[in-house]
Write a protein that binds this DNA or RNA. Structure first.
Lengths: 241, 241
DNA sequence: TAGTGGTCTAGACCACCCA
DNA sequence: GGGTGGTCTAGACCACTAC
């Protein structure tokens, strides 16, 4: 952490430290669940003060990349259901309950990426993708019909898997070494098509909440595209502003 | 900032400072747009270090209560359109454009609060509310049909106003001294009723994005209930996870 | 008891804005 | 030039966890 002060970016030291540590996560120096060195150890190693390291670690904690526990240490965040529920899964029952949904995979196919998929996922012409279709249940009733699109290149071994687990972000992490760091979503209301109507037990044309998600890896590259159709008669998408 | 260290709350000093300063905002000691004393002045007055004041001010900045500008000072946030657009209005055009909508008020009525309205807004039995219905346009086309419900008690002078301005949060602030600090929203897909269909130029039963918002004042009390129906054929609700 | 993160302090220097 | 926030450092003490 000596040079780069006068570089073209002009980032403050704590930002440089944060970027250095994120790069180590990308390089796999610390796997999910691993404990990081203490603040003083990192400070000594990087040649900065403990307060500067703390500011970088706090920022990464706010990004859900790390988990800090007093008396224990600083750990790389795990893709646990409880964390997914907090960060990514925003559907709640109208009576307030929030649970992680059960999933049933309907189809898993491999094929050439469409032009739209290539644009969204940043793929070259001719690139292939996996497409996973599944129905997700909340409290026993089917609520979400969704299609997940993954670049074949990054998920080559997916074809050899017998089953797709419920928590796919844990799968991406444990089996493919890919950490989903953040995502952006676009929400619309759209009418149920025949497929969704059949899977969710609603009428064709019934209003569904359509969620389009692009998930990004630690390095900011697109990892997953997901299109979900949700029956929101007894559920809602919740957020705080 | 001397006592309360051993109180029942056990809040750290920077949190106590933050709460003290928020209370001053509630009391109107600094109106929106006003400049706060410098960090050192506040530190001396409250008997804490400048670093502790900074941490409290940074927290309030993250809550969008304050705006800090290097070389200028720290200011109470204003309910400007640009800020509303950033914090509260999450609808964007499918091509990416984000603009503040134009509004046309359709009705403004006064009446007894329903049981549901009383529960949501925390009102006593027999309390009255204002109801404002309006249609909001984006790029010239009607996109949102919404009803705003306000406690009559807190917005007594509303009946004397000739017109309701486009930016109602600025109205709440400037005319009624009420600052909307945060809000929670619930999103569903729901079919267009006859009213919404007529206002938005869509078919009855067409899928609309229903947004239910509860806005909270600085002290955490409910201020406004809002139900919006949005035509999302060429627009979407955007958020980052 | 030792090690960790959490808090608080004091002081230095820089970048920015304005009169 | 004087005031503001932004950054960085060094050190102290506390609270929690594990052994």
């Amino acid at each position: 952490m000596s040079e780069t002060r006068q570089g073209p970016a002009f980032a403050p030291l704590y930002r440089q430290v944060r970027d250095t540590l994120v790069q180590r996560l990308i390089d796999g120096a610390w796997l999910p669940g691993a404990m990081l060195p203490s603040e003083f150890q990192l400070a000594g190693e990087l040649g900065v003060s403990q307060g500067t390291v703390r500011k970088a670690l706090d920022a990464m904690t706010a990004e859900h990349l790390l988990v800090r526990r007093q008396g224990r240490g600083t750990f790389v965040a795990l893709p646990e259901e409880s964390r997914i529920l907090f960060q990514f899964f925003r559907l709640a029952s109208d009576d307030g309950g929030r649970i992680f949904p059960e999933s049933r995979v309907v189809a898993r196919t491999r094929g050439a990426a469409s032009e739209a998929e290539r644009a969204i996922l940043g793929l070259a012409t001719g690139a292939e993708v996996w497409r996973i279709e599944r129905v997700r249940h909340l409290g026993g009733t089917p609520v979400i019909s969704e299609r997940i699109t993954l670049p074949l290149e990054r998920f080559a071994g997916l074809g050899e898997m017998e089953t797709i687990p419920n928590n796919v972000y844990a799968l991406y992490s444990e089996r493919f070494g890919i950490t989903v760091a953040r995502a952006s979503e676009k929400l619309k209301a759209s009418p149920a098509d025949a497929t969704a109507a059949e899977r969710l037990g609603c009428a064709v044309g019934a209003p569904l909440l359509a969620i389009e998600r692009l998930a990004l890896a630690l390095d900011g590259t697109p990892v997953e595209h997901r299109h979900s159709l949700c029956a929101t008669e007894r559920f809602h998408y919740r957020l705080e502003l």
